[in-house]
Design a protein around this nucleic acid. Structure first.
Lengths: 228, 228
DNA sequence: CATATTATATGACATTTATCAGTAATTTTC
DNA sequence: GAAAATTACTGATAAATGTCATATAATATG
């Protein structure tokens, strides 16, 4: 089942404005590719010639800072599109994308994207809105990084992960991050992330089981994230 | 001289793809408005129905954080467009815009923008590229905020201000910020910003004359901004 | 399954940054 | 141009965060 017009993704993502014909046209050109956990889809600085449409799975978008530490800038999940900023602006990719879970993805060559944008004004506007939305989120992230303490940012991150990825069958966050990855989301030393997680556990705000994290007291996490 | 087709801005900004006809059409609808230093052009949360095209002057784009402190997210100068993210995505403005210098600006109703985008694919792509470029900058800012120390961020900011706004006739940065504004760019307490500026002055990296700042040792500031 | 490797955890300490208090300088207002 | 208000500065101290060292647990590898 590699036909775009049958793919559920097209119903709720940026692709939703494409007609059956558009999608049929794309499905001739796209390749369905699966990635394994840990695979790198794009690397910082690379030139790409198409986008990935993620059907299922989770990725991290990160950049290497001057001091060599990884900074996770954003997460991507099923239904999201990857690499469109680079394709639209015809610049190299600015972030490295790594699979955090096994991925099901489709590759759409940039020509298909541009053709669809030319022939379908609504799709074009949806693409613009997607970029605009990401820009708004990024501006918010700048403020959070600049003004919140590490503890506040950790609380924020836990709430964000719960909202974005939901819970698994046992009520744990349905995304697995190492302590080091936690530290590169919130921008702190790994030891600090570990200590703060232990601290939250001690206060009964979260439960920890290996790398799995369960939110126990959401309202208190909200209070903390707002600086109380 | 309120005719868009004569305005120099149209030659080097996102508007450069518009034809003489497009510009003539816009000039019937636009109002030329001047703002004084300190004036607020948009407020966080407001719904706007057009963009400002800045002919001359400087603005700060800021947001109020949960703890009530202002965070300056970005600067805008002559040739830049304001409010386009909100107009394109049909959402309220997410940042407050304040004039730091007297402004000469033109107001372009959103209808004109959308019409021009429909009729002129090149203009449409230029708008997209503008958003994409801003998004890339914002991602970079997230990394800098998360991983650089306050001192590194101050060095960064000084270099950025020099590159973006250039120098006045005496060789000082051609933008005047209060110490508090410095602190809300780099995301720190005002006292810390003051101390760090004094520290840079003591080391001969910069000269201070009231609110005016002159970069004396650029290469050392670059070293500092990179964490040495 | 034994060993090597990596991830997590914790303590001690250094450094960075924030906060509070108070003064001096500058700018605004009348 | 004097008084009031704001902004800039400085010191003392507290709090947050980073670094280094080391131990333990978990995971990977042959």
């Amino acid at each position: 089942m590699s036909k775009c017009e049958q793919c559920i993704i097209s119903e709720f993502s940026t692709l939703k404005s494409l007609s059956k014909d558009d999608l049929k046209n794309i499905s001739y050109h796209k390749d369905s590719i699966d990635f394994k956990k840990g695979d790198v889809l794009f690397s910082e600085g690379t030139i790409i010639n198409g986008v990935y449409c993620i059907k299922e799975g989770v990725c991290k978008l990160s950049r290497l800072s001057a001091n060599g530490k990884e900074q996770i800038v954003r997460f991507i999940k099923g239904g999201d599109m990857l690499g469109y900023r680079s394709v639209l602006s015809e610049e190299p990719v600015s972030l490295t994308v790594t699979a955090l879970k096994d991925l099901k993805a489709c590759y759409i060559p940039k020509k298909e994207i541009f053709d669809a944008m030319k022939s379908n004004a609504k799709f074009s506007m949806d693409m613009i809105k997607t970029v605009c939305h990401d820009l708004k989120d990024a501006n918010m992230a700048i403020t959070n990084m600049a003004q919140k303490s590490v503890k506040e940012r950790l609380a924020d991150t836990l709430l964000f992960l719960k909202e974005t990825f939901g819970l698994d069958k046992d009520g744990y966050l349905d995304i697995i991050l190492t302590r080091e990855e936690f530290s590169s989301v919130i921008g702190t030393a790994t030891e600090s992330a570990i200590r703060l997680l232990s601290g939250f556990k001690k206060k009964g705000l979260i439960a920890l089981d290996g790398k799995r994290v369960k939110v126990l007291n959401e309202s208190e996490l909200i209070r903390i994230s707002q600086g109380f």
